[in-house]
Simulated scan of single mutants.
Amino acid sequence: MNRGIYIIANDKVIDHAIALLNSIRLHDTETPIIMIPYDENYHRIADILNTYYGVQTYEDLDFIDRLSHKLHETFGGKFFARPNQFRKQACWFGPFDEFLYIDTDIVVFEKIVDNLNYLNKYDFICCDYQHSGGIKNVFSPKVLEDKVFTNTEVKDIFNGGFWGSKKSLISEQDLYEIFSECAAHPEYFDFSEKTSDQPIINYMLLKRIKSRFNIVRREGKAPGNWAGTPHFQSQGDILFDSKINQPLQYLHWAGIRIQPGCPYWEIWEHYRRLNPSLPPSTIPTPETKNQWQHMVENLKSQLRQLKTK
């Protein structure tokens, strides 16, 4: 069985991609990894990732262009905050029979590709607690009012930054049909926090793939993985979820700017520095915040903690 990992990136996220690849290769030097270009500015990162980590660039760039054109044709130019995120859907058509997709604002703490073993029983996997916050950032209550999905089905919503599946379960025509369905019903989706592709991908998976498994529902519970979670504890170069005393599988800074002072900055910085052959990070130190900005940040932190309780 041909397995691999896809990422999506451009030259603006070189530091993030290096930290992610350092963490992957620390545990796994062999699994092939393919980068899907986020836009036309990807040649520098492609060269770095190929030279130091053996990452290949996605070959069928014509498909990616076709997908982007169809997306714009269907939704127009103002529907999504970051429409190029949809390029990750090229995963369904690449060379891997089974694949993981991983966002670059993630570091992993294990041989992450082994999670594809769940595909022996299921057709789609994810690994997060997005569902614990309800349907926010994915759907509006309208999907339940109109019986588009049941209350049970929406418990399978997931974060679009980490997921895995099998080649060709979604066809190109499936993508275009889903685009049309979603464009006809924008009232079904929650784009209030600029989540871009996540609502549409969730709609597609719930409609098209019935055999799904969220790894956090495994027997014996599973750790969290969002960097906004306050109770993770460092033990060396990994984190533990103190509520269940289990090591994290990965950490995702979804919605959080990775910079000095952000949650678990020291962990990210450790993985960014793991390859001494590469120059140090270019992420700048943020400007000193005034009293009002500190008050806003404290309020956001308190809200994040309430969400995790």
Rank of each mutant, 00 (worst) to 15 (best):
M1L: 15
G4K: 13
Y6E: 15
A19G: 09
L21F: 06
H27D: 06
T31V: 11
P32H: 10
I33K: 05
Y38G: 08
Y42D: 13
I48T: 09
Y53D: 04
G54F: 02
T57N: 06
T57A: 02
Y58E: 08
D60K: 14
L71I: 00
E73R: 09
T74G: 10
F75T: 11
F79P: 04
A81T: 02
F96A: 08
F96T: 12
D97H: 12
D97S: 15
E98F: 04
E98L: 07
L100R: 05
I102T: 07
I106D: 05
F109A: 10
F109C: 12
I112Q: 10
D114W: 05
N115H: 14
N115S: 10
N117G: 08
L119W: 06
L119Y: 06
N120M: 01
K121G: 02
C127K: 08
Q130G: 00
I135V: 12
N137C: 06
N137A: 10
V143F: 02
F149E: 07
E153Y: 01
V154Y: 03
K155C: 02
G161F: 02
G161Q: 06
G161P: 11
G164T: 11
S165E: 11
L169K: 13
L175S: 04
Y176H: 15
P186K: 04
Y188Q: 11
F189M: 13
F191T: 01
F191W: 03
F191P: 03
E193R: 07
E193G: 03
N202F: 03
N202T: 04
Y203C: 05
Y203R: 00
R217C: 02
R218T: 07
N225D: 10
G228R: 05
G228P: 08
Q233E: 15
S242K: 14
K243C: 00
I244P: 12
N245M: 04
I258D: 07
Q259L: 09
G261S: 06
P263D: 11
E266I: 04
E269K: 15
H270S: 07
Y271D: 09
Y271C: 14
L274D: 01
L278Q: 06
T282Y: 01
I283F: 11
P284T: 03
T285V: 15
Q293G: 00
Q293D: 13
T308V: 05
